[in-house]
Simulated scan of single mutants.
Amino acid sequence: METYGKRVEEVFRAAGHDMEIAVVAASDILQALETACRRDDLDAIVAGGGDGTISAAAGVAWRTGMPLGVIPAGTMNLFARSLKLPLDIWKVPEVLANGRLIDGDIGSADGRAFVHQFSMGLHARMVRYRESYKFASRAGKIGASVRAAIGVIFNPPDFEIEFDADGHRELRHVSAISVSNNHFGHATLMYADDVTAGHLGFYTAPPLSPAGVAKLVFDVLRGRFRASPFITEMSALAVDLHFPKVDRKINCVIDGELLPIRRRDVALRVHPGELKLLVGA
């Protein structure tokens, strides 16, 4: 880490910028971000980590108006892919140091920021299963994800939602919900091609059999999520979800983090142009 930090400092200095490096424990990340974003002598922050860390950094940057740069150091690095940044941590500092600022979009679920997606059903169950396994490396996490996906295939969720998407109201029985910060790309893994289009992507899948879940997983892995016959999609600025038959604990996933839903309603919004992002020139 010390070697990498020195390299980042050198790259930014060569581009005419001063850079301070702080290595922060997971339990201290939010406090460190809050402190950095409230300084008046910084032009931007650069956060390195997985999608969960980047999501936390984006939430603080959004609330404080601080520009954010991203170093992809996680497993999937989906938001970095949306920003078209190199996934090699040794190459991305030069791109950021010589980059430009854009006004990107950010989503929120009951006020909690997300840069990638809010999801329920299949994805939340898979993450819950994965977190029940022990792993200590990226390869271990991938292996745990494969085991969890197999578990979900043979035990898919099935639940009822009422939703209002920009005034369109409907009741649906589903196995999965995903609300993304801008639509996912047509031929990519589940990440947006453009984070400045100013809308939410709203996707649902009907109650699925094990064979149906397996087919949907295959479509996701080959970048054909939106083309899957199981997926219904809409665009919206605001999506309100209501769960009329909740009689037990339910979970959602926000940018990779499994979280409990404590009440029967969730308000999802897009905030166009409110997240300042450092991207390649």
Rank of each mutant, 00 (worst) to 15 (best):
V179D: 01
L83D: 04
W62F: 15
G52F: 04
A58D: 07
Y133A: 11
N77W: 09
A73E: 13
C252D: 03
P244Y: 08
A211D: 11
S55E: 06
S132Q: 14
V70R: 00
R38I: 07
R172N: 09
T35D: 12
R264G: 15
A211H: 13
D158T: 12
G185A: 12
T53Y: 01
V95C: 02
K141L: 08
A214Y: 01
D219G: 06
F159R: 01
V253I: 05
S235Q: 12
S175G: 13
E170A: 09
P72F: 01
N98F: 09
V60Q: 00
G107W: 04
E233R: 14
R7A: 11
R13F: 07
I54T: 00
P206A: 12
F114P: 00
K6F: 06
F114N: 04
V24Y: 11
R112P: 03
M120L: 14
V270G: 03
P156W: 02
I150K: 15
A144R: 10
S235G: 04
S119L: 06
S209Q: 06
A80P: 03
A113D: 02
G273M: 05
L277W: 05
V95D: 00
N77E: 12
F12A: 03
H17F: 09
D28A: 14
N251S: 13
P67S: 10
G223Y: 08
V217D: 00
G49E: 11
M126E: 06
R138A: 10
A32F: 03
V127P: 00
G185K: 04
